[in-house]
């Protein structure tokens, strides 16, 4: 069977696959870290399949790893998941289709699919960008998690510094958020609040409380965003 992509579709598909490959490697790290935090292989895989939003999954597992409760883990993780709601708002006007199709597409509304879809202007390419990224990324995210979880079951988390592995992953995810002044202020505020509150409130709550730093976004806009 001969399968050829039209010239304008090819770059969209190529970048979707490259992005998904990189995310697959991140999934490998998530699998190892989740098992190190006390999840079993099935729980790690279920998170990647059903929750399917990386930063929230990582956040929940690191609160559990440091001894927090389920409630404490959920607070920060759900706050992080909230941004997918904003992405949904941005994508929705460009999406035609039945309710059933929208309900399915909603599961795939994350950082990467939003970025890939919004990078296109033509509706046909937007649709291709969204679905190619969704399918490739979802497949590799779940495969990477399974492999990582199996690998992680074989090693001791403390000896291998996996707790710092979590932080290192967040640092890499944080850098792209620091391109605007508001991003820098929110990050600095979140960092300070999360450490200063720690002695006074239950584990996990400082992470949730650091969310107040986002209200820096309310200040009148002087700058033009550089990102």
């Amino acid at each position: 069977m001969k399968f050829r992509l039209e010239p304008d579709v090819r770059p969209v598909v190529t970048s979707a696959l490259a992005l998904s490959g990189a995310v697959g490697v991140f999934a490998l790290a998530f699998g190892v870290l989740a098992v190190g935090a006390g999840a079993n292989v099935w729980q790690a895989c279920a998170l990647s399949f059903f929750t399917f939003t990386g930063a929230s999954q990582m956040s929940a597992m690191s609160v559990i790893a440091s001894g927090g409760t389920v409630g404490g883990a959920l607070g920060g993780a759900l706050l992080l998941a909230g941004r997918n709601g904003v992405y949904g708002l941005a994508l929705s006007p460009h999406f035609k289709g039945s309710l059933a199709k929208r309900l399915l597409a909603a599961h795939f509304v994350i950082d990467e699919t939003t970025a890939m879809m919004m990078a296109q202007t033509n509706p046909r390419l937007q649709k291709i960008a969204f679905w190619t990224t969704a399918i490739a990324l979802f497949s590799l995210w779940n495969l990477g998690t399974l492999l990582g979880a199996l690998l992680g079951s074989a090693i001791d988390p403390h000896t291998y510094g996996l707790d710092v592995g979590f932080s290192a992953a967040y640092v890499a995810m944080l850098f792209p958020q620091l391109t605007t002044t508001n991003g820098k202020i929110a990050a600095a505020g979140g960092a300070v609040i999360s450490v200063l509150l720690a002695p006074f409130v239950p584990i996990g709550l400082p992470i949730l409380a650091s969310g107040v730093a986002i209200f820096v976004g309310l200040r009148p806009r002087h700058e033009t965003a550089s990102a």
Partner: peptide, 22 residues
């Protein structure tokens, strides 16, 4: 919307500093 898009910046920084210094 501007506030909601700052969630990753605030929370990721919080996760890093909280899990490193406590």
């Amino acid at each position: 919307s501007r506030c909601l898009l700052l969630i990753p910046a605030a929370l990721l920084a919080a996760l890093v500093f909280n899990s490193t210094f406590t």
